[in-house]
Design a binder for these strands. Structure first.
Lengths: 192, 192
DNA sequence: ATTCATACTTGACAGTGTCTAGTGGATTAA
DNA sequence: TTAATCCACTAGACACTGTCAAGTATGAAT
């Protein structure tokens, strides 16, 4: 029987790691320091996650689940809304997003439950593109449009999070407005 | 007077670091191991770069210089060609690209000569967008299109390098063809 | 001949992830 | 009631890392 009350330490470790990831980046996470802050021994966190990669896998699974839900919720609203949903997810879940896309931190292939959520997110995105293109579109065309939409959303998200976009544009007055503009430009190419 | 013959160790360290970055990622770089492979003491590399961040700064400067040249060379060919140039640069200089975009490894603000090259690359990209839009375009419009083009190129590059794009699309038969398709879709929105 | 900078070497330190072994308490089985 | 077993965690050691501080050989400049 699954425990009704989940262990608080597991959650505490996750939250502490996410906070550091959001503030400085995943590489700044020291499991020993997290343990110290939680008032437990340096090995306690490892009991719940196995090793360092296990924590990143747990974060990835959680993140991809949220991302999949966000994309799925946007699907009836068109590709522009989907693009916005992707970017807003990244901005709202900085700690998760930074970890999710770092394949060197943990290989999702080794964590099936995380991989399932990642696939969910991808499939939701691709399905939406196919719907817009029309069901009779060639696979090659669908692939190109999927890669394109994903690239715009992912590129804008990473540039806003860690890239020099803000500095280079001389400071962005209204981030949401920019995201909307870019999403609109992106979706225009799907209606050729 | 600047030394005519540059020290070989500096270059050797850079090349070894780039090889590891391209193969596994920047975090896998151990300066001590690089030194070991080069047959020098563990502190020898630090003499040339100061600290770990200094190596990443040197790699970034080199990378942004190449990227700027690649973008500048593509400017007369339109935004699609520029997008392709950006992605091809990333694929051809995996080791550089992975480091250049990791602001947590080194802050370019602390390395003016690297920042200059980054600005060169950005300005080349923005200028090209402005030329296509027409000189009378509003700043706000130019910013949106710049962010958009950069997002597509950057997103595709990072997804191809580290993202799950390849696996999710069921294997990409012809990467160059996909890059061209995406670049075409991207440039379409600039000619509305 | 002396000074001085360059290109290193050597040793020590704190910090990290991980392996191994142990501990106390609760749950379960006899 | 007692013994066995699991769970959540502790404790110590290990190899490895980047970095600080101090020393050394070599070559050029004065």
């Amino acid at each position: 029987m699954a425990p009704i009350k989940t262990e608080p330490l597991r959650r505490a470790v996750l939250d502490a790691a996410l906070a550091i990831s959001a503030e400085t980046g995943p590489d700044a996470i020291s499991l020993r320091e997290v343990a110290r802050e939680a008032g437990v021994s340096h090995q306690a966190p490892y009991h719940h996650f196995g090793d360092r990669a296990g924590i990143f896998a747990a974060i990835s699974e959680e993140g991809f689940r949220s991302l999949a839900e966000a994309i799925e919720a946007s699907t009836t609203l068109g590709t522009a809304a989907m693009c916005e949903a992707y970017v807003h997810f990244a901005l709202a879940h900085k700690g998760h997003f930074r970890v999710m896309m770092r394949t060197d931190l943990c290989s999702l292939e080794d964590y099936p439950s995380a991989l399932i959520q990642a696939d969910r997110a991808f499939n939701a995105l691709r399905n939406e593109v196919v719907v817009i293109l029309g069901q009779d579109a060639h696979d090659d065309d669908a692939n190109a449009h999927t890669a394109y939409m994903w690239s715009v959303a992912h590129g804008l998200a990473t540039l806003l999070l860690d890239g020099p976009l803000d500095k280079k544009l001389g400071g962005i007055a209204d981030v949401n407005a920019l995201v909307t503009q870019v999403a609109q430009l992106a979706s225009a190419s799907n209606h050729a």
